[in-house]
């Protein structure tokens, strides 16, 4: 059994594959480029799996998505070729939650900016990095699913924030089990929050969801965190809002094009924090997801139903 992975796997997952007798071609192995010809199973990270890829992958039986978002996978093409696709919804939820909150505090308190300034030779004044408390402020969560609900709980119970959410797909019953008050219209949420954090998938509906008009509705003192998907926030509109002082700061773990180039216009701004799509990159999440991917692959290859199958 030949398993390819276009994403680094936790040692525990590699051990489990070895124990099952699998030959593994990892993300940093030059043979990875031959995956379509040889792979029976693929543990998929960012690599795009379109119809052409599925057409080439004749031996492929199962794709285990190492994460939640499957916007890079053509599910119709997978079904047509009878390739099973499974994912790990919620496997990285706590990890993304902690990154989103870390980015929010880092923005509110200008931690990264202060760190960068100390390392540079530029002198600074003691009162220069004035921030604000999260406690008592209003947080808005767009997409209150597996991750959004954890962020809501953490901000409410850890930081004493008043949390509201926008999510057109939740029932009244779902809302009762969230630490976030329902706001029916995104526009109403935008105007009232001091922190806006995005936790929705990238779909036709959410592409460019936060653009010029939306940024215009936000308070100039507000901060924005996106650990969901690039493309949800319109980057040129964000750049002009941040440079005109219409938004206080933004932290992006995800970009329209990844990795973002070093000359990305947003990197010229001090009130931006950029990370490298590492929401799911914690020891705990990588281990849990890696092991789950292995289980899904072994189940599918043995003809059993993989957990969290989407195709």
């Amino acid at each position: 059994m030949k398993v390819f992975a276009d994403v680094p796997l936790h040692p525990a997952a590699l051990e489990a594959l070895a124990a099952a007798g699998a030959e593994v071609v990892g993300w940093d192995d030059p043979r990875l480029s031959a995956w379509a010809e040889e792979a029976e199973a693929l543990i998929n990270g960012p690599m795009r799996l379109d119809a052409a890829a599925f057409a080439r992958a004749r031996r492929l039986k199962v794709v285990a998505k190492h994460g939640t978002g499957i916007d890079n996978i053509d599910l119709k093409a997978a079904r047509a070729r009878k390739v099973r696709v499974a994912r790990s919804p919620g496997g990285n939820a706590q990890s993304v939650t902690e990154l989103a909150v870390g980015l929010a505090v880092a923005l509110a308190r200008r931690i990264v900016e202060s760190d960068a300034r100390i390392r540079s030779l530029a002198p600074f004044e003691r009162g220069e990095f004035t921030g604000f408390d999260l406690r008592g402020k209003a947080a808005g969560i767009v997409g209150v699913g597996a991750i959004g609900r954890r962020v809501a709980r953490l901000l409410a119970q850890g930081f004493g924030m008043a949390v509201s959410g926008y999510d057109p797909y939740l029932s009244a019953d779902d809302w009762r089990r969230r630490d976030a008050a329902r706001v029916a219209r995104l526009d109403d949420l935008l105007a009232r929050v001091d922190l806006l954090t995005l936790h929705c998938p990238l779909t036709d509906e959410t592409r460019g969801l936060i653009g010029e008009a939306e940024l215009e509705r936000m308070k100039p003192s507000a901060i924005l965190v996106n650990t969901a998907r690039g493309g949800i926030v319109d980057e040129p509109a964000l750049f002009s809002a941040l440079s005109d002082g219409r938004l206080a700061g933004a932290a992006l773990d995800v970009f329209a094009a990844e990795p973002p180039p070093a000359d990305h216009p947003l990197f010229a701004l001090p009130n931006v924090i950029a990370t490298r799509h590492v929401g799911g990159y914690s020891e705990e999440a990588l281990k849990a997801i890696g092991l789950k991917c292995v289980r899904q692959i072994l189940d599918a290859l043995a003809g059993r139903e993989p957990e969290d199958a989407v195709a």
């Binding site: 902690e98 980015l103 880092a106 960068a116 590492v278």
Partner: peptide, 12 residues
Amino acid sequence: LAVARRIAYCDR
């Protein structure tokens, strides 16, 4: 959190 998740390093 910035230390745990290498936020400042990644940004740099």
